[in-house]
């Protein structure tokens, strides 16, 4: 039987929540295509990650371990994914979008001579739906090849709940290919705060924050909700905040229950990354700022006055 195969993103110990969102898509797609659903965990000593997924009722969890697969590279993981896709007779191969999914999936598509759909938000069994032009256009896409490769936009799918039969884990030995790239190291952006794509509340700051120091105001507000911190490109470019917190067309796409934007004008490239949030609050001193066109609630005010005031008032509400 053919399959839908999803590559699992993890941090070597735990799976990323975005994988559970991809899993929701995977279940829907397997049903529409009348195939089974398989998962693929790649890494070194990552059996624990595979085990975390056993209660989700997929058909098979493939586990491919080797010290050479410990740190992701497109060449090694792409090779493994394509080999497993062939063995499991996959007709649809996907991974949640993010820098790994976006780097890896096209490489897999090229190996399998497959058409690829980036950041898919829906699939009716025939056409794939995605957004283009910084979220201004919704496109309905036909893939003409027998195999399709996708990256999956997490904001479009809820996280899967456990359910169904316990899945079996199948270990596969995939010989390590010769490669032309080597992972050297990662300079991690150290933070105890959640990832903006996973948090219920995201508080973002823009150029109006004026300095790295002032981002503490954003952080204090976010911490009240155990929320995440985000930023506009202008704030990231200024070096005030880590690059992986950029929200927008070319950064992260988020859709929290509550998105608070302070000192952000609302350029189309920023809106592309947050316009599907449930509730949007904008704080900006310019009443003409386009962010107010998408905000449910706006305050035309100086953020240096209003953000601390809001933080203080919420402290009373949230205890």
């Amino acid at each position: 039987m053919s399959s839908v195969l999803l590559v699992v993103e993890h941090n070597k110990q735990k799976l990323k929540m975005a994988t559970l969102k991809a899993l929701t898509f995977g279940r829907q797609a397997a049903e529409k295509l009348n195939t089974q659903l398989d998962l693929l965990v790649i890494g070194h000593e990552v059996e624990a990650v595979a085990k975390q997924l056993q209660s989700y009722g997929v058909n098979t969890i493939y586990l491919v371990e080797d010290s050479a697969y410990k740190n992701y590279t497109a060449e090694t993981w792409g090779h493994v994914t394509a080999e497993v896709a062939k063995q499991s007779d996959a007709v649809l191969i996907g991974m949640n979008t993010g820098t790994t999914g976006r780097d890896l999936m096209p490489r897999v598509a090229a190996k399998l001579n497959a058409g690829m759909v980036t950041d898919l938000i829906d699939f009716d069994g025939d056409l794939f739906v995605r957004e283009m032009w910084a979220g201004n256009v919704r496109a309905f896409i036909e893939v003409t090849t027998p195999i399709t490769v996708v990256s999956i936009q997490g904001t479009a799918f809820g996280a899967a709940e456990p359910g169904g039969n316990e899945s079996s884990i199948t270990r596969l030995e995939i010989p390590v290919p010769k490669t032309k790239t080597r992972f050297l190291k990662i300079r991690e952006s150290k933070s105890d705060r959640p990832d903006p794509t996973e948090a219920r509340v995201v508080v973002s700051g823009g150029r109006g924050m004026k300095s790295s120091e002032n981002f503490k105001l954003i952080e204090s507000l976010a911490d009240l909700f155990d929320g995440a911190v985000g930023a506009s490109r202008a704030a990231v470019d200024s070096g005030w905040i880590s690059n992986d917190l950029q929200v927008g067309q070319t950064g992260k796409t988020v859709a929290p229950d509550l998105y608070i934007a302070a000192g952000i004008s609302g350029a189309i490239q920023h809106l592309a990354g947050m316009k599907n949030s449930k509730v949007i609050v904008a704080i900006n001193k310019d009443e003409e700022a386009p962010i107010f066109e998408v905000a449910d609630f706006g305050l035309v005010a100086d953020l240096f006055k209003v953000v601390p005031e809001l933080t203080e008032a919420l402290k009373k509400e949230l205890v």
């Binding site: 993010g98 820098t99 790239t181 080597r182 050297l184 990662i186 952006s189 992986d244």
Partner: peptide, 10 residues
């Protein structure tokens, strides 16, 4: 530029 920081590769 990757999720989680800056990766350095050769």
């Amino acid at each position: 530029e990757v999720d989680g920081g800056i990766e350095i590769m050769e």
